[in-house]
Design a protein around this nucleic acid. Sequence first.
DNA 1: TGTTCATATCAAAAAAACTTGATATAATTT
DNA 2: AAATTATATCAAGTTTTTTTGATATGAACA
Lengths: 101, 101
Amino acid sequence: MIDIVKISKALSDPIRYKILLMLLNHKGCTSSQCETDMKGVCNCEIMEEFGMIQSRVSYHMKELCESGLVTEMPKGKWKYYTLKKEAIREYSKELGVIFQL
Amino acid sequence: MIDIVKISKALSDPIRYKILLMLLNHKGCTSSQCETDMKGVCNCEIMEEFGMIQSRVSYHMKELCESGLVTEMPKGKWKYYTLKKEAIREYSKELGVIFQL
DNA sequence: TGTTCATATCAAAAAAACTTGATATAATTT
DNA sequence: AAATTATATCAAGTTTTTTTGATATGAACA
């Protein structure tokens, strides 16, 4: 069952929210090192986009994955992240059920 | 315009979430002191329900009001709170728009 | 195999959120 | 007007979350 408080907490940090929007609008990695044909966003892109250090990105991506809003796909030494729209859909829907909207 | 991060933060505290559910299911104040014909929930009820001290309830109700999820109605020396379903509806809907669900 | 590169984890520091007890304000009642 | 009652606010303490720098792990490649 979906945990409203847990997902709300994941959404409640401005940086994490921006990362989610970035995942949503992602068109392909432009970073020279990474493989551009991967669907997800890699850590290096997020670091560049927001000027964040590596461990900070790692921390927030873990939070997002554990909330269920993001899926990670390891590929060699990289990791690619994709938005799990279904989780957001479930969250939005569940709010409607619980609060009888 | 509705602020996703702000509302998420309001929803991300377990106590506040429980208070919202309490407001949702409220049928009328059972507390002896208060006027039972008011639609909302008063502070004393919330204190009783969760065994919270007054200043703690006050703090969380302020958070909920400022997020827009709850409306307060002063009535004499009391204050009655009601759930603002419309705000939750907007939040849920806006998530759908932003994340193209 | 040893080096390099990407990510994970850890411990310490910093910041933010929450809780509490004391006091203030404001309406009500005696 | 004074005492009572409900809520607000404040400052201090506590807990949780976030950030950072250092180090560890694990894959890729020379």
